[in-house]
Protein backbone atom coordinates (compact mmCIF):
# COMPACT_ATOMS: atom_id res chain seq x y z
CA UNK A 1 0.00 0.00 0.00
CA UNK A 2 2.91 2.31 0.76
CA UNK A 3 4.20 1.94 -2.81
CA UNK A 4 0.73 2.66 -4.10
CA UNK A 5 0.56 5.86 -2.06
CA UNK A 6 4.03 6.96 -3.16
CA UNK A 7 3.17 6.31 -6.78
CA UNK A 8 -0.02 8.34 -6.48
CA UNK A 9 1.90 11.22 -4.93
CA UNK A 10 4.59 11.14 -7.62
CA UNK A 11 1.97 11.08 -10.37
CA UNK A 12 0.46 14.22 -8.92
CA UNK A 13 3.65 16.31 -9.18
CA UNK A 14 3.56 17.01 -12.94
CA UNK A 15 -0.15 17.61 -12.63
CA UNK A 16 0.47 20.24 -9.96
CA UNK A 17 3.19 21.88 -12.05
CA UNK A 18 0.92 22.18 -15.05
CA UNK A 19 -2.00 23.36 -12.94
CA UNK A 20 0.01 25.98 -11.06
CA UNK A 21 1.60 27.34 -14.22
CA UNK A 22 -1.75 27.48 -15.98
CA UNK A 23 -3.36 29.29 -13.07
CA UNK A 24 -0.40 31.64 -12.62
CA UNK A 25 -0.54 32.49 -16.32
CA UNK A 26 -4.29 33.07 -16.32
CA UNK A 27 -4.37 35.10 -13.11
CA UNK A 28 -1.41 37.24 -14.15
CA UNK A 29 -2.73 37.89 -17.63
CA UNK A 30 -6.34 38.43 -16.64
CA UNK A 31 -6.20 40.37 -13.39
CA UNK A 32 -4.00 43.41 -13.01
CA UNK A 33 -2.80 43.53 -9.41
CA UNK A 34 -1.94 47.21 -9.75
CA UNK A 35 -5.29 48.21 -11.19
CA UNK A 36 -6.68 49.37 -7.85
CA UNK A 37 -4.03 52.07 -7.86
CA UNK A 38 -5.13 53.42 -11.21
CA UNK A 39 -7.95 55.63 -9.93
CA UNK A 40 -7.26 58.60 -7.69
CA UNK A 41 -3.59 57.74 -7.08
CA UNK A 42 -0.44 59.23 -8.47
CA UNK A 43 1.09 57.40 -11.45
CA UNK A 44 4.34 57.12 -9.50
CA UNK A 45 2.59 55.11 -6.81
CA UNK A 46 1.40 52.59 -9.34
CA UNK A 47 4.76 52.42 -11.08
CA UNK A 48 6.50 51.80 -7.75
CA UNK A 49 3.99 49.08 -6.90
CA UNK A 50 4.62 47.34 -10.24
CA UNK A 51 8.38 47.53 -9.76
CA UNK A 52 8.27 46.33 -6.16
CA UNK A 53 6.26 43.26 -7.07
CA UNK A 54 8.14 42.55 -10.32
CA UNK A 55 4.87 42.76 -12.20
CA UNK A 56 6.71 44.07 -15.25
CA UNK A 57 8.75 40.85 -15.49
CA UNK A 58 7.73 38.19 -18.04
CA UNK A 59 5.20 35.81 -16.53
CA UNK A 60 7.48 32.79 -17.06
CA UNK A 61 10.24 34.41 -15.00
CA UNK A 62 7.81 35.28 -12.25
CA UNK A 63 6.48 31.74 -12.19
CA UNK A 64 10.02 30.39 -12.08
CA UNK A 65 10.83 32.60 -9.11
CA UNK A 66 7.67 31.50 -7.37
CA UNK A 67 8.38 27.81 -8.01
CA UNK A 68 11.93 28.00 -6.65
CA UNK A 69 10.62 29.64 -3.47
CA UNK A 70 7.59 27.38 -3.20
CA UNK A 71 9.59 24.14 -3.17
CA UNK A 72 11.46 25.64 -0.21
CA UNK A 73 8.19 26.28 1.57
CA UNK A 74 8.09 30.00 0.82
CA UNK A 75 4.90 30.96 -0.99
CA UNK A 76 5.86 34.59 -1.29
CA UNK A 77 4.16 37.74 -0.14
CA UNK A 78 0.88 39.37 -0.98
CA UNK A 79 1.19 42.19 -3.47
CA UNK A 80 -0.93 44.70 -1.62
CA UNK A 81 0.07 44.31 2.01
CA UNK A 82 3.46 42.57 1.61
CA UNK A 83 2.40 39.98 4.19
CA UNK A 84 3.57 36.38 3.89
CA UNK A 85 0.97 34.52 1.86
CA UNK A 86 0.74 31.75 4.42
CA UNK A 87 -0.27 34.31 7.06
CA UNK A 88 -3.37 34.90 4.95
CA UNK A 89 -3.96 31.29 4.01
CA UNK A 90 -3.48 29.66 7.41
CA UNK A 91 -6.41 31.30 9.26
CA UNK A 92 -8.63 30.98 6.20
CA UNK A 93 -7.79 27.28 5.97
CA UNK A 94 -8.57 26.76 9.64
CA UNK A 95 -11.93 28.53 9.33
CA UNK A 96 -12.86 26.43 6.31
CA UNK A 97 -11.73 23.23 8.00
CA UNK A 98 -14.13 23.96 10.83
CA UNK A 99 -17.10 24.52 8.55
CA UNK A 100 -16.25 21.62 6.26
CA UNK A 101 -15.44 19.32 9.17
CA UNK A 102 -18.69 19.92 11.01
CA UNK A 103 -20.56 19.91 7.72
CA UNK A 104 -19.17 16.55 6.64
CA UNK A 105 -19.76 14.95 10.03
CA UNK A 106 -23.34 16.14 10.28
CA UNK A 107 -24.11 15.52 6.63
CA UNK A 108 -22.71 12.00 6.71
CA UNK A 109 -24.62 11.09 9.84
CA UNK A 110 -27.92 12.56 8.66
CA UNK A 111 -27.58 11.40 5.05
CA UNK A 112 -26.71 7.84 6.01
CA UNK A 113 -29.57 7.72 8.49
CA UNK A 114 -32.06 9.04 5.94
CA UNK A 115 -30.69 6.82 3.18
CA UNK A 116 -30.87 3.67 5.28
CA UNK A 117 -34.31 4.53 6.61
CA UNK A 118 -35.64 5.23 3.10
CA UNK A 119 -34.16 2.03 1.73
CA UNK A 120 -35.50 -0.12 4.54
CA UNK A 121 -38.96 1.48 4.13
CA UNK A 122 -38.87 1.64 0.36
CA UNK A 123 -42.04 3.03 -1.25
CA UNK A 124 -43.55 3.95 2.10
CA UNK A 125 -45.05 7.40 2.67
CA UNK A 126 -41.99 8.40 4.66
CA UNK A 127 -39.75 7.23 1.81
CA UNK A 128 -41.72 9.34 -0.68
CA UNK A 129 -41.63 12.29 1.69
CA UNK A 130 -37.89 12.05 2.27
CA UNK A 131 -37.33 11.59 -1.45
CA UNK A 132 -39.35 14.71 -2.15
CA UNK A 133 -37.49 16.68 0.49
CA UNK A 134 -34.20 15.47 -0.95
CA UNK A 135 -35.11 16.87 -4.34
CA UNK A 136 -36.15 20.14 -2.74
CA UNK A 137 -32.84 20.20 -0.87
CA UNK A 138 -30.84 19.58 -4.03
CA UNK A 139 -32.69 22.42 -5.73
CA UNK A 140 -32.04 24.95 -2.96
CA UNK A 141 -29.26 27.36 -3.95
CA UNK A 142 -27.04 28.10 -0.94
CA UNK A 143 -27.12 31.90 -1.45
CA UNK A 144 -30.91 31.83 -1.19
CA UNK A 145 -31.19 29.21 1.49
CA UNK A 146 -28.53 30.94 3.61
CA UNK A 147 -30.36 34.26 3.64
CA UNK A 148 -33.74 32.63 4.22
CA UNK A 149 -32.32 30.60 7.10
CA UNK A 150 -30.79 33.77 8.50
CA UNK A 151 -34.12 35.57 8.18
CA UNK A 152 -35.86 32.66 9.90
CA UNK A 153 -33.32 32.82 12.72
CA UNK A 154 -34.16 36.51 13.17
CA UNK A 155 -37.87 35.72 13.33
CA UNK A 156 -37.13 32.95 15.80
CA UNK A 157 -35.24 35.41 17.98
CA UNK A 158 -38.30 37.65 17.99
CA UNK A 159 -40.55 34.80 19.09
CA UNK A 160 -38.43 33.19 21.76
CA UNK A 161 -35.81 35.66 22.92
CA UNK A 162 -37.34 39.12 22.78
CA UNK A 163 -35.47 39.92 19.58
CA UNK A 164 -32.03 39.17 20.97
CA UNK A 165 -30.20 36.78 18.65
CA UNK A 166 -30.58 33.06 19.22
CA UNK A 167 -28.45 32.04 16.26
CA UNK A 168 -25.72 34.23 14.88
CA UNK A 169 -24.82 34.91 11.27
CA UNK A 170 -21.62 36.91 11.62
CA UNK A 171 -18.45 34.88 11.83
CA UNK A 172 -17.69 31.92 14.09
CA UNK A 173 -17.50 33.72 17.43
CA UNK A 174 -18.82 36.82 19.12
CA UNK A 175 -16.34 39.67 19.45
CA UNK A 176 -13.32 38.76 21.50
CA UNK A 177 -14.48 35.17 22.16
CA UNK A 178 -13.05 31.87 21.00
CA UNK A 179 -13.04 28.18 21.87
CA UNK A 180 -15.57 25.37 21.65
CA UNK A 181 -18.56 26.67 23.58
CA UNK A 182 -22.21 27.59 23.22
CA UNK A 183 -21.35 30.85 21.49
CA UNK A 184 -19.42 28.87 18.88
CA UNK A 185 -22.31 26.44 18.43
CA UNK A 186 -24.78 29.29 17.97
CA UNK A 187 -22.54 30.75 15.26
CA UNK A 188 -22.10 27.38 13.53
CA UNK A 189 -25.73 26.38 13.07
CA UNK A 190 -26.63 28.66 10.15
CA UNK A 191 -23.49 28.25 8.01
CA UNK A 192 -23.30 24.51 8.57
CA UNK A 193 -26.99 24.16 7.77
CA UNK A 194 -26.54 26.20 4.60
CA UNK A 195 -23.56 24.14 3.57
CA UNK A 196 -25.12 20.78 4.33
CA UNK A 197 -28.65 21.04 3.02
CA UNK A 198 -27.67 20.18 -0.55
CA UNK A 199 -25.07 17.64 0.54
CA UNK A 200 -27.45 15.79 2.81
CA UNK A 201 -30.02 15.72 0.05
CA UNK A 202 -27.69 14.25 -2.55
CA UNK A 203 -25.80 11.89 -0.24
CA UNK A 204 -29.02 10.48 1.17
CA UNK A 205 -30.07 9.56 -2.37
CA UNK A 206 -26.76 7.78 -2.96
CA UNK A 207 -27.06 5.98 0.36
CA UNK A 208 -30.63 4.90 -0.33
CA UNK A 209 -29.71 3.56 -3.73
CA UNK A 210 -26.66 1.76 -2.40
CA UNK A 211 -28.58 0.24 0.49
CA UNK A 212 -31.33 -0.98 -1.81
CA UNK A 213 -28.71 -2.82 -3.90
CA UNK A 214 -27.18 -4.37 -0.83
CA UNK A 215 -30.46 -5.30 0.82
CA UNK A 216 -31.52 -7.24 -2.25
CA UNK A 217 -28.27 -9.27 -2.23
CA UNK A 218 -28.24 -13.01 -1.67
CA UNK A 219 -26.03 -12.85 1.39
CA UNK A 220 -28.49 -10.58 3.15
CA UNK A 221 -31.29 -13.04 2.48
CA UNK A 222 -29.01 -15.83 3.66
CA UNK A 223 -28.19 -14.00 6.85
CA UNK A 224 -31.88 -13.44 7.54
CA UNK A 225 -32.63 -17.10 6.72
CA UNK A 226 -29.99 -18.14 9.23
CA UNK A 227 -31.87 -16.20 11.89
CA UNK A 228 -29.76 -13.06 12.22
CA UNK A 229 -31.96 -10.25 13.50
CA UNK A 230 -33.15 -7.60 11.02
CA UNK A 231 -31.41 -4.66 12.73
CA UNK A 232 -28.15 -6.62 12.88
CA UNK A 233 -28.42 -7.58 9.21
CA UNK A 234 -29.10 -3.99 8.21
CA UNK A 235 -26.50 -2.33 10.38
CA UNK A 236 -23.70 -4.88 10.42
CA UNK A 237 -23.93 -6.60 7.05
CA UNK A 238 -25.93 -4.19 4.93
CA UNK A 239 -24.64 -0.83 6.03
CA UNK A 240 -20.97 -1.77 5.87
CA UNK A 241 -21.22 -2.64 2.20
CA UNK A 242 -23.76 0.04 1.51
CA UNK A 243 -21.35 2.68 2.70
CA UNK A 244 -18.66 1.91 0.14
CA UNK A 245 -20.02 4.07 -2.75
CA UNK A 246 -20.83 6.92 -0.35
CA UNK A 247 -17.30 6.91 1.05
CA UNK A 248 -15.98 7.62 -2.44
CA UNK A 249 -18.52 10.38 -2.96
CA UNK A 250 -17.70 11.95 0.41
CA UNK A 251 -13.97 11.88 -0.28
CA UNK A 252 -14.42 13.55 -3.65
CA UNK A 253 -16.89 16.11 -2.28
CA UNK A 254 -14.59 17.20 0.54
CA UNK A 255 -12.08 18.48 -1.99
CA UNK A 256 -14.78 20.16 -4.03
CA UNK A 257 -16.22 21.77 -0.90
CA UNK A 258 -13.10 23.87 -0.44
CA UNK A 259 -13.95 25.79 -3.57
CA UNK A 260 -17.70 25.66 -3.15
CA UNK A 261 -17.83 27.39 0.18
CA UNK A 262 -17.72 30.88 -1.26
CA UNK A 263 -21.40 31.63 -0.87
CA UNK A 264 -21.67 30.29 2.67
CA UNK A 265 -18.57 32.14 3.73
CA UNK A 266 -19.70 35.43 2.22
CA UNK A 267 -23.24 35.30 3.61
CA UNK A 268 -22.07 34.40 7.11
CA UNK A 269 -18.94 36.51 7.04
CA UNK A 270 -16.50 33.68 7.61
CA UNK A 271 -13.06 34.50 6.26
CA UNK A 272 -12.33 31.06 4.86
CA UNK A 273 -10.71 29.59 1.78
CA UNK A 274 -13.62 30.32 -0.57
CA UNK A 275 -13.68 34.02 0.25
CA UNK A 276 -9.91 34.18 0.19
CA UNK A 277 -9.88 32.69 -3.30
CA UNK A 278 -12.44 35.09 -4.73
CA UNK A 279 -10.82 38.14 -3.13
CA UNK A 280 -7.38 37.04 -4.30
CA UNK A 281 -8.64 36.49 -7.81
CA UNK A 282 -10.32 39.89 -7.96
CA UNK A 283 -7.20 41.57 -6.61
CA UNK A 284 -4.89 39.72 -9.00
CA UNK A 285 -3.04 38.20 -6.03
CA UNK A 286 -1.47 35.36 -7.99
CA UNK A 287 0.64 34.17 -5.05
CA UNK A 288 -2.42 33.63 -2.87
CA UNK A 289 -4.30 31.91 -5.67
CA UNK A 290 -1.37 29.53 -6.20
CA UNK A 291 -1.06 28.71 -2.51
CA UNK A 292 -4.81 28.14 -2.43
CA UNK A 293 -4.57 25.90 -5.47
CA UNK A 294 -1.78 23.83 -3.98
CA UNK A 295 -3.68 23.30 -0.77
CA UNK A 296 -6.89 22.46 -2.60
CA UNK A 297 -5.04 20.07 -4.92
CA UNK A 298 -3.26 18.48 -1.99
CA UNK A 299 -6.61 18.09 -0.27
CA UNK A 300 -8.17 16.43 -3.29
CA UNK A 301 -5.24 14.05 -3.72
CA UNK A 302 -5.25 13.24 -0.03
CA UNK A 303 -8.95 12.55 0.12
CA UNK A 304 -8.83 10.45 -3.04
CA UNK A 305 -6.15 8.39 -1.38
CA UNK A 306 -8.17 8.12 1.79
CA UNK A 307 -11.14 7.01 -0.28
CA UNK A 308 -9.08 4.22 -1.84
CA UNK A 309 -7.74 3.16 1.54
CA UNK A 310 -11.16 3.29 3.16
CA UNK A 311 -12.49 1.28 0.23
CA UNK A 312 -10.01 -1.51 0.92
CA UNK A 313 -10.82 -1.48 4.61
CA UNK A 314 -14.56 -1.59 4.07
CA UNK A 315 -14.29 -4.23 1.36
CA UNK A 316 -11.44 -6.68 2.04
CA UNK A 317 -11.80 -8.06 -1.49
CA UNK A 318 -10.27 -4.85 -2.80
CA UNK A 319 -6.49 -4.72 -2.67
CA UNK A 320 -4.44 -1.66 -3.54
CA UNK A 321 -1.46 -2.32 -5.74
Amino acid sequence: MLIYILRRVLYSIPLLLIATFGVFLMVSETFDASAYLAQNRSPETRAAFIEKNNLDEPVVNRYGDWLVDAVQGNFGETYRSSEPVMDEVRPAFWNTIQIVGWGILISAFVAVSIGVYSAVRQYSISDYLLTGLAFVGIALPPFWFGLIAYHFATELAGWVNGGEPVLYGLGLHSAGKDGLNLDYARHLVLPVMTLTVQIIASWSRFQRSSMLDVLSSDYIRTARAKGVSRPKVILKHGLRNGLIPLVTIIALDVGALFGGLVVTEVVFSIPGMGRLFVDALNNGEANIVLAWLLIAAFGIILFNLLADIAYSILDPRIRLS
Binding site: L147, A153, Y168, G169, V266, V267, S269, R275
Partner: peptide
Amino acid sequence: QADTAAEFQAFQNRE
Protein backbone atom coordinates in the same frame (compact mmCIF):
# COMPACT_ATOMS: atom_id res chain seq x y z
CA GLN B 1 -19.60 41.73 6.47
CA ALA B 2 -19.10 42.26 2.77
CA ASP B 3 -22.51 41.03 1.63
CA THR B 4 -25.08 43.82 1.78
CA ALA B 5 -28.13 41.55 2.06
CA ALA B 6 -26.54 39.60 4.91
CA GLU B 7 -25.44 42.88 6.50
CA PHE B 8 -29.06 44.00 6.66
CA GLN B 9 -30.01 40.63 8.09
CA ALA B 10 -27.31 40.98 10.75
CA PHE B 11 -28.75 44.40 11.58
CA GLN B 12 -32.25 42.98 11.90
CA ASN B 13 -30.90 40.11 14.00
CA ARG B 14 -29.42 42.75 16.34
CA GLU B 15 -25.91 41.45 15.80
